[in-house]
Design a protein around this nucleic acid. Structure first.
Length: 410
RNA sequence: GUGGCUAUGGUGUAGCGGUAGCACAAGAGCUUGUGGAGCUUUUAGUCUGGGUUCAACUCCCAGUAGUCACCCCA
């Protein structure tokens, strides 16, 4: 019989406990920062009507990089490649009753059909943070501030990353002055966005607009304001970058992107911007909207090369070593008493020798082993052993609870 | 979608045109109420298909997968 392959589907990941531990850690940082800013958690399905991505996301993404299929009812369905259209749809649906401004966040998994490479898989989890209903740059300001605080909470210093900001209006104005056709505009934006990557930028620019780009592009009032206010909040690694475009077509104003400054990982980590017009496609009223998205894969890479990922700790605080099968129930009862007092307990239900059980506890990284045998059950005193130091105490259940509470609190 | 590199037990690796070794991990035992060491032992492998050859894990081709870069983008 042909065996089924154990590899996960192309470009997606399995999360074994040690990976899940990292994932949980990353999510916990995201949750705690967002909650501290009063953001509300929401979610939606990974399945969406295909049409919500058409026209606004980016034609290549929609046509060539989504998982799209026709369901049994002949509906065209897409695995969401990003969250922004979904949240916009949700907001549009209840726009009349929602208490604006909204500050919402979510951690969805999103899918792109493309060749996997470093930092980019076919599925990743992406923190999405959005503000609906604020027109002023205080919205951008808060989201950049949050981005910064998340980086800080992960242990990254200002020197580890740089926040680039731009205003799409600056580029739009420039393109109007240059009198570019629609086709030229698209090429022009694309070229700007990868200025740092191409060696013959000036030559390519001549090909697109017929001459080198001589204009000095200076920041407008909004950008100046934003940088000033960020600086006054002690966020100093911010720069104006007129070449920053970002791929989505729906951005209408300020865009920002966080870049890793480590030479080993010199890449965009995440970013966002203002997209005031997107509600329009759902028949909603246009409203001031800013958002950003931050993927788990890229941030994990950035933390990994800096050794900032936490080490996995055991799932349990204590391992109940049942010496005979006849002790399983007694062991379970003790475990339940401990659990009721906040101690996480793993109970052995295998007919194994004590030495094997201790070894198992050690391999699982569980710090304490509690021995439950006939003698202990009779006397009501249980030996508890610290796996690392090897020291043992002989305690009643009440004493054990107090003992573990004290040990585990520090 | 394009290109480079790679493919040997679960993991990490060695090897040679002539019957695939090693380490770690995992299981069992030495040891019937106290682990981490040691010893014994078990399980387990040349990605798939084709070609060259007396003989292919080894050489060639294709596919597949992984990886990196490009495209695009997060």
């Amino acid at each position: 019989m042909k065996k089924i392959d154990t590899d996960a589907y192309k470009g997606v990941r399995d999360f074994y406990p040690e990976d899940m531990f990292i994932q949980d850690y990353i999510f916990s940082v995201w949750h705690s920062v967002l909650q501290s800013y009063g953001y509300e958690h929401y979610s939606s399905s990974i399945l969406e009507h295909s049409e919500i991505y058409e026209g606004k996301t980016s034609s290549e993404i929609v046509n060539e990089q989504t998982y799209t299929f026709v369901d049994r009812g002949n509906r065209r369905v897409t695995l969401r490649p990003e969250m922004t259209p979904s949240i916009t749809r949700m907001v549009a649906k209840k726009q009349k009753t929602l208490p604006f401004p909204l500050k919402w966040y979510s951690i969805p998994n999103v899918f792109r059909y493309e060749r996997p490479q470093k930092g980019r898989l076919r599925e990743h989890w992406q923190l999405n943070v959005d503000i609906f209903g604020i027109d002023s740059i205080y919205a951008e300001l808060e989201l950049i501030d949050i981005s910064y605080q998340i980086m800080h909470k992960f242990g990254l210093q200002e020197s580890d990353f740089v926040i680039k900001i731009n205003d799409r209006k600056i580029i739009e104005d420039l393109m109007i002055n240059l009198k570019l056709s629609e086709e030229q505009k698209a090429k022009f934006k694309k070229l700007l966005d990868k200025k740092d990557k191409v060696s013959d930028f000036n030559q390519k620019m001549i090909e697109v607009i017929g001459r080198p780009l001589n204009e000095t592009i200076s920041p407008n009032k909004n950008i100046q304001n934003l940088i000033e206010k960020l600086n006054s909040r002690n966020i100093r690694n911010v720069v104006f970058d007129p070449m920053l475009i970002r791929g989505f077509d729906y951005y209408t104003g300020i865009v920002f992107e966080i870049f890793d400054t480590n030479p080993q990982n010199n890449r965009s980590l995440f970013g966002g911007g203002r997209y005031n017009d997107l509600l329009d496609i759902f028949g909603g009223k246009k409203i001031g909207t800013v958002g950003f998205g931050m993927g788990d894969v890229t941030i994990r890479d950035a933390l990994e090369i800096r050794n900032l990922l936490p080490k996995k700790i055991s799932a349990a605080h204590a391992f109940v070593c049942t010496i005979n099968e006849s002790n399983y129930d007694a062991g379970t009862n003790i475990a339940n008493e401990l659990r009721a007092n906040g101690v996480d307990v793993f109970v052995n239900y295998e007919d194994k020798k004590i030495s094997d059980q201790i070894r198992k506890a050690e391999k699982k990284g569980i710090p304490y082993v509690i021995f439950v045998g006939d003698e202990e059950v009779k006397s009501g005193k249980f030996k508890i052993k610290n796996i690392i130091s090897g020291s043992e105490n002989n305690l009643s259940i009440e004493q054990m609870i107090a003992f573990l509470k004290e040990k585990l609190s520090n």
